[in-house]
Design a binder for these strands. Structure first.
Lengths: 334, 334
DNA sequence: CTGTTAGCGCATTCAT
DNA sequence: ATGAATGCGCTAACAG
């Protein structure tokens, strides 16, 4: 419908060969005499031939596309992973097809289905709520990598960060600073990441000989506004607090704003640490201390794994956990 | 290659009709007797038939996909538009295919080409550097909407915000606050948006009887770090400055950080206004005053226009400019 | 090495 | 209203 497009026939004719030969030099599947080879290539260049993806797909059964389901365009953490995926797939011949799950199961399910219908050759799922068995079914059809989730049933498909370690590092950082009354703004209690981060927080406290105080833990939902509410809830409890570990930067931002409204300064009056190392964190005043998450690397690795499987490397790598580092606040002390 | 998929033949057989009939009820192109109709539908449901997109595309010449070229995953402004596009296309039957231009012409060009090869039925380009004549060529093949750019040659395809107006509003806001020495951190001089915002800034000054001082304009590149550098450059000039209008929030963030390092407080010592209304702006301390850009609406509108053209509504709407509002800073004064 | 041929799954035109 | 037949553009056996 678009334009009188040139087909493989046109270039076959112009090069004086058969269409199969054309196909062969283009796909490099079978050796072709150098003469015909260049003739074909010339014709291709001359006519600006663009193979029809549909025809290729129909005939070969491959789409040369890999689907990527993200949680939400605009989420700093997932967007970073997306960038990694883009780079990882770049020049691989595979084209990434993105879909936005918008944080909810229904959309995610629909999005994956839509991508599967488009015959993607591989699937990368970032986080999400799709059940393991559903993902398992897809895994039987195409190579699958699940980033940022741990699915016991799909152990070898999961690529994740060590959230316990991240939280442990953050909390320990505060402890080393001399804090004893460390509060925690957690993610939703049913969220795996939130659980792990809570776990790491507790672990660090215990190892330091501090008994975790449930009253110092407030549940948020990983969004900015919940950080605000968390602080209000926390302060209303009247417990002594000298430091706060927020399960992610977004909530830390909210927390900081709420603290500011109460006239409590960070880090002068209370220390605050987040997780994710969002770009904005470095531009807060003073910059927010946070835990760096290697999002780009995660995306790259995910792409690498998919491509590997596509190339036949059936050997599935074990779930990889990445190192985490504390990005020190570069705050200017007044 | 994926799985023994059920084809139109299978359901034709099961429903006791010909494949053409199946195709007809599925596409609703031609009336079909109610009896056969339900028989087909039943078979489809029973066998969980999923039409092969490639076969459909090959036979019909349509992909039922619209390509969306963004500047960068992770850019707050563009991500917001993306969300609008997602919603606008939702349940339209069309599937959005996203590509990341990564802020550079080469990638953009490659991305558009890749999408065109995938036979997209429509194209939405967010900003970017692709030349107007190149876009014009694509416009001849598929419906095109360019968001956030003004292309005189493609007038009727452009959907944009009134950047002059935005800058005017921001600057005027500062003037009304009593400021006379208002600096401007602009975007790159060759960027259309940057030009317009500079223009609006100057216009507001002139109308207020203030002669624009070239020394108060510093060029940035719309990125955070450039805001930092801009402030350093500005302050080194030694001119009196009581307010700053940054061409976007990102640079405003950088500016604020740089000011803070110099011990200059916002808004106590100097007022600062940005543009974009990024989510993070509301969580700065104090919140950044900014100009709200209706990104979601832009995306929705872009999708609407594409769908309209796809449905045959050849009437192309004039370029739309959206209203802008000042989001007042809710700073708590110390 | 290379040309010929048979589909891939579906939309559609042409008869009926 | 509906079945049969064609072809979309390309890949992959299949014969040379």
């Amino acid at each position: 419908m678009t334009k009188e497009s040139v087909t493989i026939n046109d270039i076959a004719q112009r090069a004086g060969v058969s269409i199969s030969t054309v196909s062969r030099v283009l796909r490099g599947t079978t050796p072709v005499s150098e003469m015909k080879r260049t003739a074909v290539l010339d014709a291709v260049a001359a006519l600006d031939y663009q193979p029809n993806v549909f025809a290729q797909g129909l005939a070969s059964g491959q789409s040369m596309a890999v689907g990527v389901l993200t949680q939400n365009f605009g989420s700093p953490f997932y967007d970073t992973i997306l960038q990694g995926v883009v780079h990882g797939l770049h020049e691989s011949g595979y084209f990434p097809i993105f879909a936005d799950g918008e944080w909810n199961l229904e959309r995610e399910t629909a999005a994956i289905l839509a991508m599967m219908q488009r015959k993607i050759d591989g699937l990368i799922v970032l986080g999400g709520h799709v059940a393991a068995d559903v993902l398992g079914q897809y895994a039987e059809q195409v190579p699958l990598v699940v980033v940022g989730r741990h699915l016991p049933e799909l152990e070898e498909c999961c690529l994740q960060l060590d959230n316990v370690q991240a939280a442990y590092t953050a909390t320990n950082y505060l402890i080393k600073l001399g804090h004893r009354h460390i509060a925690h703004i957690s993610g939703r209690a049913d969220h795996p990441d939130a659980k792990d981060r809570l776990k790491g927080y507790r672990q660090a406290l215990r190892e330091a000989g501090i008994r975790p105080n449930p009253g110092l833990v407030v549940e948020g939902n990983f969004r900015r506004q919940s950080g605000v509410l968390a602080i209000e809830a926390l302060l209303s409890r009247g417990l002594p607090v000298s430091a706060i570990f927020a399960a992610n930067d977004q909530m830390a931002f909210g927390a900081r704003l709420a603290l500011h409204r109460r006239g409590i300064r960070v880090p002068d009056d209370v220390s605050l640490v987040g997780v994710d190392d969002e770009p904005a964190a470095a531009f807060m005043i003073p910059p927010l201390t946070t835990i760096h998450q290697p999002g780009v690397e995660l995306g790259l690795e995910a792409a690498r794994i998919i491509l590997g499987q596509l190339k036949g490397e059936a050997l599935r790598p074990v779930s990889l956990t990445t190192e985490l580092i504390v990005r020190e606040s570069t705050a200017v002390q007044r």
